[in-house]
């Protein structure tokens, strides 16, 4: 019973995490050709998301840096992604 319930939740999470929307800014937006993209691959961590983005948009690799923000805070590669997170690609900043 417990196992089945757990599996069900995991499946639901996987489905929800799949439909992730990602915000892009600056040169990352130009490279992707859109201010928001949808990622359908099941990526559970920031590192996996970055790898997915690099495969999809190889020119992101040429940037000086490419950070990911989760819920408006810079996230490390091992940070977990949850359904409903606000995720953004942050290319090298240049304000001021």
């Amino acid at each position: 019973m417990q196992v089945g319930w757990d599996a069900g939740i995991k499946q639901r999470l996987a489905i929800e995490v799949k439909g992730m929307k990602i915000l892009l800014f600056g040169i990352a937006k130009d490279i992707a050709g859109a201010p928001v993209i949808q990622v359908d691959a099941p990526v559970a961590k920031v590192a996996a998301l970055k790898e997915h983005l690099y495969q999809q948009y190889p020119r992101l690799r040429e940037l000086k840096s490419c950070m990911i923000a989760v819920n408006k805070v810079y996230a490390t590669d091992d940070a977990a992604l949850q359904p409903g997170d606000e995720i953004a690609v942050i290319p090298p900043v240049s304000g001021g």
Partner: peptide
């Protein structure tokens, strides 16, 4: 701070410090 600056020159434009 996540702010980005694009410079416009006579012969094109570039996102500052991106590369």
């Amino acid at each position: 701070v996540p702010i980005w600056k694009k410079e416009y020159f006579e012969d094109g434009e570039v996102w500052v410090a991106a590369h």
